[in-house]
Write a protein that binds this DNA or RNA. Sequence first.
DNA 1: CACATTTGACCTTT
DNA 2: AAAGGTCAAATGTG
Length: 314
Amino acid sequence: MAAAAAQPYAQVMEDMRKGQELAARLQGLLADSPDAGRLVDQILHAMSRTIETARAAAAAEEGSEGQSEVTCAGTGGGKRKVAGGGDKRTACRRRAHNSSTVTVTIKDIEDGHAWRKYGQKEIQNSKHPKAYFRCTHKYDQQCAAQRQVQRCDDDPEAFRVTYIGAHTCRDPAAVAPLVLHDADELHAGSRLISFAPNNASAATASTTTTGNTSSQQGDNKDAALLAGLRPLKLEAGGGEQEEVLSSLTPAGSSAAAEAARNAAATPGPDQGDVTSGLQHFYYGGGFADMAAFDDTFDLDVLGVLGFDQGQHDF
DNA sequence: CACATTTGACCTTT
DNA sequence: AAAGGTCAAATGTG
């Protein structure tokens, strides 16, 4: 809207954004046709890349933006010891700037990458805690990708996921399931990842409405969803929609744990194992540069849009 | 036994 | 000082 486009760059960006949105909607409508969904998927990727390129170019011209490091590297500190320790550690709170950061609102936090949870915090104005994840290969391959997941206050079914930094790892578990449709994507390398063949449509991440995503077991809705659609044990009888921001991708934690912890900070055993993921959906890295601006994409558009969110259950 | 999650402490930024 | 973010010991599960 707004006749922004103060310059060609802005115009291009606006158009591309619009195109993305429309394509996303189309994808939702084509949920029944995997092939069509894939095509739209490719369109979306192409657009993302275009946007990225445009942004990078614009940034280059301005000679300022265009950074893409990750998290704050370190103010140089050691680590703290437990109880009565005395060391210092690097805690970079507020990495707002530099470092690709993209925030999306989705219902399916699964993104095909192996994440490892390293913390959880209660956030002041939020009802739900925020979970902190880092790539499993952080030390392995120096992959600095991170992500933060927090359940939306409004939509308990939706999550606000913030991706920080792009993946530089080559985790088979994460790459295998992904499908590169074209050399373009290959070119994009670790920046653009496509959806898995079968989930082309599921890519919209949501559709789910919580309760449909059951890709295989259709049992523990939220839990399953959060756990990354892996076969988990789940017990929380009710399978409510607790915070469950535990092991989203990698392991398979149980809502019980969360519930417990939530209810009374009771130690909740749950964890699962490793890798796993391998689902669909986009990947933050693709927006690496856009992220330089801290954009916030409401992917709800993709899944919620306005379709019968909850009609397709694959 | 190895690895991931939990969880409270500690640190940095606002 | 508070809030937010990260670390690492302890713990649990596969």
